[in-house]
Design a protein around this nucleic acid. Structure first.
Length: 266
DNA sequence: TTCCAGGCGTATC
DNA sequence: GATACGCATGGA
């Protein structure tokens, strides 16, 4: 990882990063493209960021070195060598094509609670609508609400979210996390199957949502969310399962595959 | 108007 | 354990 300070900004040099591929691929829901197309603005927890750039050079505006090293370095997973991962994946022809198609994707290290909320809202929903619900949620509070704040809500008091049948699910999630019945931090350490079972005790959290929370919110790269797109791709390209070169990072392979089959038209 | 969206809970077999 | 169906809301 190479960077330098430039006035109030941080300049980041990173060849394996494309902003739209990473921030606008359906793994995060709080980023919007700038009007001039130069980059994105968005939030991680209570941190606001404007980031611009392309072709290996990026500018994080109004960012101190300590925020960069303490927050964004981790969020953008800058200590992982994606070139090495893509080299590994290139042993498989389909994955090789997917990596060449969107080689600037990275797995964001998001917050567990925010990921849980986001993916509870994702069930039978569109990415656009998920973003609108999340936006109404944090604008209502002025920040992203904690589990305790949401645990005090009712289906009626959440009607402004217009999230439909998912309101009762989000309240159940908030209660179980706030009361410690589900400890998100503990899920980072538990065996994968146990962590998954723990999450599925929450109403509205099934196999797909729990895998998304584990992967996008809790850095469990072995989690492999299977949605309708991935299901089609698996039966078509991998009837006998994923190739050996993805072992331990199945979730990152899923990012490349998901984007490729959605966007490439293959 | 009708159909579907990064699923899940429930009923039924 | 498999399969069918309903579900709130918004956009195409």
């Amino acid at each position: 990882m190479r960077y330098e300070s430039s006035g109030k900004d941080i300049i980041l040099y990173e060849n394996d990063l494309n902003l739209s591929q990473t921030l606008d691929c359906g793994q995060a829901f709080r980023w919007e493209p700038n009007e001039d197309g130069s980059g994105y603005t968005g939030w991680y927890l209570d941190r606001y960021l404007e980031i611009t750039g392309e072709n290996g050079v990026f500018r994080l505006k109004n960012t101190s070195e300590s925020d960069f090293l303490g927050v964004w370095r981790d969020y953008f997973d800058l200590d992982t060598d994606y070139s090495e991962l893509k080299r590994l994946y290139s042993c498989d022809p389909m994955l090789k094509r997917a990596c060449e198609f969107s080689g600037g994707m990275r797995l964001l290290r998001q917050d567990g609670w925010e990921a849980l909320c986001s993916y509870v809202f994702s069930s039978n929903n569109t990415i656009h609508n998920i973003k609108m619900i999340i936006k109404r949620l944090y604008e209502h509070y002025g920040h992203f609400p904690s589990p305790a704040e949401l645990a005090g809500e009712s289906e009626e008091s959440l009607s402004y979210l217009r999230c439909g049948f998912r309101a009762k699910y989000i309240i159940d999630a908030a209660k179980k996390v706030a009361e410690g019945e589900v400890s998100l931090e503990r899920l980072r350490e538990l065996p994968y199957e146990s962590a998954r079972a723990e999450l599925m005790r929450i109403k509205g959290v099934g196999p797909k949502v729990s895998d998304c929370v584990l992967l996008y919110g809790l850095c469990r790269r072995e989690a492999f969310p299977v949605d309708v797109w991935i299901k089609r791709a698996m039966s078509r390209f991998y009837p006998d399962g994923l190739p050996e070169c993805t072992k331990g990072t199945e979730g990152i392979a899923q990012l490349y595959l998901f984007n490729y089959i959605r966007r490439s038209g293959e």
